[in-house]
């Protein structure tokens, strides 16, 4: 674990997170994320070699139901909040390949 974050590190993370950060944001986050990660370094002093991870606080496994067809949202309702819904009932997006 290293807590030094370069500008390139932040740009790589931003690309993974689909965030088009400004130069100011990149500089700010490089500093702030390094501070937070440095604080998190204290976790390294805990030996967890014999400890399993807790992914979820619930002991019960997720409830399952029968796979039967049920009514769902009407298509016009599902599309009502879309920034660009096509009249034939589709979400319209910019071209996928530039």
């Amino acid at each position: 674990m290293s807590t030094r974050l370069t500008r390139a590190d932040v740009e790589r993370i931003a690309a993974l997170a689909h965030l088009d950060l400004t130069a100011d944001e990149t500089a700010l986050f490089a500093k702030q994320l390094a501070q937070i990660l440095e604080y998190a370094e204290r976790l390294r002093e805990v030996d967890t070699a014999q400890v399993s991870a807790t992914w979820h606080p619930s002991a019960a496994s997720a409830a399952l139901r029968d796979d039967v067809r049920r009514p769902s949202l009407a298509r016009e309702d599902a599309l009502a909040g879309a920034p660009d819904a096509a009249p034939d009932g589709l979400f319209r997006v910019p071209k996928v390949i530039g």
């Binding site: 689909h18 088009d20 400004t22 994320l33 530039g98």
Partner: peptide, 29 residues
């Protein structure tokens, strides 16, 4: 660029505030 990927990135940068971006970045890392 007017591609889908560029739209995602610009939308998310314009739409999320600083604290949310900070946490998305931290979590992604």
């Amino acid at each position: 660029e007017a591609t889908l990927a560029a739209m995602y990135d610009r939308t998310r940068d314009a739409g999320f505030g600083a604290e949310v971006k900070r946490r998305i970045m931290l979590g992604t890392y």
